[in-house]
Write a protein that binds this DNA or RNA. Structure first.
Ligand code: MN
Ligand code: MN
Ligand code: ZN
Ligand code: ZN
Lengths: 139, 139
DNA sequence: TCAACAGTTTAGAATGGTTTTAATGTAATT
DNA sequence: AATTACATTAAAACCATTCTAAACTGTTGA
């Protein structure tokens, strides 16, 4: 449980003005028991259901990208034509249920350590992400 | 070096009629020394440069998806709004150079075995893909 | 051999997620 | 309060991809 005042501080400390819209999006994203995965469309629907206010699509995109840049959200790479975001910013991996189009978290311990044995001169590793695609098991 | 006759057989054996367009795309994709990664736009440009013929964009999409379905190509999941394909259909992983927007193959031995310790009832693993994002190493 | 059929190609339109535009609104600063 | 910079918005633009429907081509079998 995080208070509105804390979200305002968080935004100010990030150099983002604490607008009504950004605070509402903070509440929707970061005031939950558990972390979760969402698309922009999911987020718009959650906002519509939880609040009376409407936030324009452009602002939702702007805010999600601002939060991603600040490290408050992660984008999950999936072979898909729409972006998936994650409020779980810890290093972790994913199942992707192809039929349901849903992401499921994998803990580091579910996958084990991954050591990349190759290097590219002038480049360093920014992230290592494992995506495990799931299909229906017909026996 | 694969002959046109062999591509025709390959197509016929897959239940795909060996049209002029599909044979040309086979030549562009599968008659190379090394495997490579490409977007649809890349492929269209390669075709334009290597041939006098033009192949419509719709046909390029159709053919790439047909080849993907038959297992002659793989789609690589990247955080991007465009699809990346791979003529290397062996199990392997990738570096993704964010600045260059280029994929680089990682051999299985560059990554080591990955054992997923979690299961989901009624689901089975279809693929396990590691994506290692690279950024510029300043220092 | 060739008509008939099914599969394929094509230009262009449509789709849909995302970004841009530019006018209006609001938070911060003085 | 006035100024300034930043933010929101509806609508338009963008752009990768898919769809449409008409023309074309490979295949089959009489
Ligand atoms: Mn993003
Ligand atoms: Mn595909
Ligand atoms: Zn996650
Ligand atoms: Zn590859």
């Amino acid at each position: 449980m995080t208070t509105t005042v804390e979200f305002i501080s968080k935004l100010r400390n990030s150099g983002l003005r604490p607008t009504k819209q950004r605070i509402k999006i903070c509440e929707v994203l970061f005031n939950k028991e558990k972390t979760f995965h969402f698309t922009i469309n999911d987020l718009v629907k959650i906002i519509e259901n939880e609040a009376n206010e409407k936030i324009s699509l452009a602002t939702v995109y702007n805010t999600v990208h601002a939060f991603e840049k600040k490290g408050y959200l992660k984008e999950i790479p999936i072979d898909s034509n729409q972006s998936y975001f994650d409020t779980n910013i810890a290093d972790h991996h994913h199942f992707y249920d192809i039929a349901e189009k849903k992401l499921i978290d994998l803990k580091q311990t579910d996958v084990g350590p991954i050591n990349i044995q190759k290097t590219i001169p002038g480049k360093k590793i920014k992230s290592v992400e494992v995506l495990v695609k799931l299909e229906t098991d017909n026996q």
